[in-house]
Amino acid sequence: MTKIKEVIVVEGKDDTKQIQRAVDADTYETNGSALNDQDLERLKKLQASRGLIVFTDPDFNGERLRKMIAAAIPGVKHAFIRRDQGVPTEAHGSLGVEHASSATIKAALAHLYTQAPTASATFTHQDLQGAGLTGNARARQRRERLGQLLGIGYGNGKQLVHRLNMFRITREQFINAVQQINREEENE
């Protein structure tokens, strides 16, 4: 079983159980989407001593938590799963990491992104518009697929520009992903 040296930040105990089925790792449970000053101080200490991987649910609260941590603690790593990979198998339950397969968790942890401050914006809203990622009927699906291909999760137009720049996606990576989306749409 793969050993992860960093501490993985998750939302709850069910997330911890599922991650520990996939990899040998320590987790820090936030117990929801609220973080207090004590939590942030503990997370800062963990980042300094072992490093952190933020692995929150692919929903509004998970993204909110991810943003709070990233804003307070520079240099954290991020792991993402797609929304469709976190759907509960039973009628009840909410979208989350606890429903992801071990293979999905391992793949997400193998493709981490480290948040880096952006000196200057590489991507703009015009880039998204030119690539058909905003301003048309299929834009949402195209943004979702781009997030999957690049491993940075889904975002609306404004969030996607921010993520492309924050994770320092190269122009070449962006173009290759957009070309793949175009090929997939041609084959539909």
Rank of each mutant, 00 (worst) to 15 (best):
K17W: 09
E41W: 08
M68G: 03
V76L: 06
D39R: 08
E63K: 14
I81V: 09
H78C: 06
I69W: 03
F60Q: 13
R42F: 08
T56D: 04
D84R: 11
R82P: 07
F80Q: 12
T56V: 05
A71I: 09
A22N: 06
T56P: 04
I69G: 04
R42L: 10
S49Q: 12
K45T: 13
I73G: 00
E41Y: 10
K17E: 13
V76I: 11
F80M: 14
G51H: 03
L52V: 00
N36K: 03
G32N: 00
K44L: 06
R64S: 07
L40S: 01
P74Y: 00
P74D: 04
A70C: 11
P58E: 06
A25I: 07
R82Y: 05
F80V: 14
K17T: 14
R64I: 07
A22V: 06
Q85L: 00
D84H: 14
D59P: 09
R83A: 13
T27A: 02
Q20A: 01
N36Y: 02
L43C: 04
R66D: 09
K67D: 15
F55S: 06
Q18S: 14
D37V: 13
R83M: 10
R82H: 10
Q20S: 04
S33W: 02
D84W: 12
T56E: 03
A72M: 09
G32D: 00
Q47F: 04
A72N: 12
L52G: 01
F60W: 12
K77D: 04
E29Y: 08
L52I: 00
D24S: 14
L65G: 03
Q47Y: 03
H78W: 07
D59F: 09
Q20C: 10
L52M: 02
G75A: 13
R64C: 02
G86S: 01
R82W: 05
I73M: 01
A22T: 07
L43N: 02
N61H: 15
Q20T: 10
V23P: 11
D84T: 10
F55V: 06
R42C: 10
Q20R: 13
N61E: 15
Q20Y: 03
A72F: 09
G62P: 08
M68C: 11
E29S: 15
A79E: 05
R64G: 06
K45F: 07
D39F: 08
I81T: 05
K44P: 03
A25T: 07
D26K: 15
E41K: 15
S49H: 08
K45H: 11
L35I: 05
K67S: 15
D24W: 11
A70W: 07
D24P: 03
Q85H: 02
V54A: 05
Q47M: 08
K45V: 10
Q38I: 14
T30V: 09
D84Q: 11
K44Y: 03
R83K: 15
R42W: 04
I19W: 06
D37P: 06
S33R: 05
R42A: 12
G51C: 03
V76D: 05
A71W: 09
V76M: 06
I81A: 01
G75F: 11
A79V: 04
F80T: 14
I73Q: 00
M68T: 15
S33K: 08
I69K: 05
